[in-house]
């Protein structure tokens, strides 16, 4: 009971001193960039721990991952449920977490805790076109840009390192100070590389076979 109360108190204190941060990301051509990850890593204050029951889901459905880009705080448990009609063989060879979930049948779910911050690119051995990006950040203050390219974060006032990442764009990082009860609005421009994802063919090619 006590810790809950303390946490509530902390949230109240924090919210009392919260600052609004908003960043609108556009491509070099001026188009809004969705699926960009914006995170604020506190430079002075300690990072609050991940709640014990916190978990995020990346499902497999229709021979695709349900989410193209997912952001989690380091230490979060990610569940990989198979909601498909075929088996999948989920794996990653990325440095923060190398793993393999060997062929598992529809209805089953595997889960993995991602402790190390960094980018984890997830694929499927059976289906070349399946890809998902899991961005593990060392902070609870993060957001993913929406269709309008805007990512909004509410965080306590203080000094932060702002990081922006996108599957097709370079990491942009800079230092930033959020003031009390003030709204900071920024814009960022990302130079996007061409989309090189494996295209999944739809329907039959030569027909009749």
């Amino acid at each position: 009971m006590k810790p809950t109360l303390l946490l509530l108190l902390a949230v109240t204190v924090l919210s009392a001193r919260a600052a609004e941060y908003s960043c609108t990301i556009s491509s070099a051509k001026g188009a809004p960039v969705a699926d960009a990850v914006v995170s604020l890593v506190p430079l002075d204050a300690p990072v609050p721990p991940v709640p014990a029951d916190a978990h995020v889901e990346i499902a497999q459905q229709d021979q695709e991952f349900t989410s193209y880009v997912t952001v989690v705080q380091a230490g979060t448990k990610v569940v990989f449920p198979n909601r498909d009609s075929v088996q999948h063989h989920v794996y990653s060879l990325s440095k923060p977490k190398k793993f393999e979930l060997p062929l598992y049948n529809p209805g089953k779910a595997e889960s993995i805790v991602f402790d190390v911050a960094g980018l984890v690119t997830i694929g499927c051995n059976i289906h070349d076109w399946m890809i998902s990006h899991l961005v593990v950040v060392p902070t609870p203050w993060f957001a993913k840009s929406d269709a309008a390219g805007t990512a909004k974060i509410t965080a306590p006032a203080g000094r932060y390192r702002l990081e922006i990442w996108h599957p097709r764009g370079a990491v942009a990082a800079k230092e930033l100070t959020l003031a009390d009860s003030a709204a900071t609005k920024e814009t960022a421009v990302l130079t996007l590389k061409p989309d090189r994802r494996v295209r999944r063919s739809v329907g039959t090619k030569t027909g009749g076979y």
Binding site: Q63, S85, V86, Q87, L103, I126, H127, D128, W129, V198, R199, R200, S201
Partner: peptide, 14 residues
């Protein structure tokens, strides 16, 4: 698993 095999063959065909 014929269905998974078929989806796997589609991936290979690509």
């Amino acid at each position: 698993d014929a269905q998974t095999l078929a989806s796997n063959l589609r991936s290979y065909a690509e």
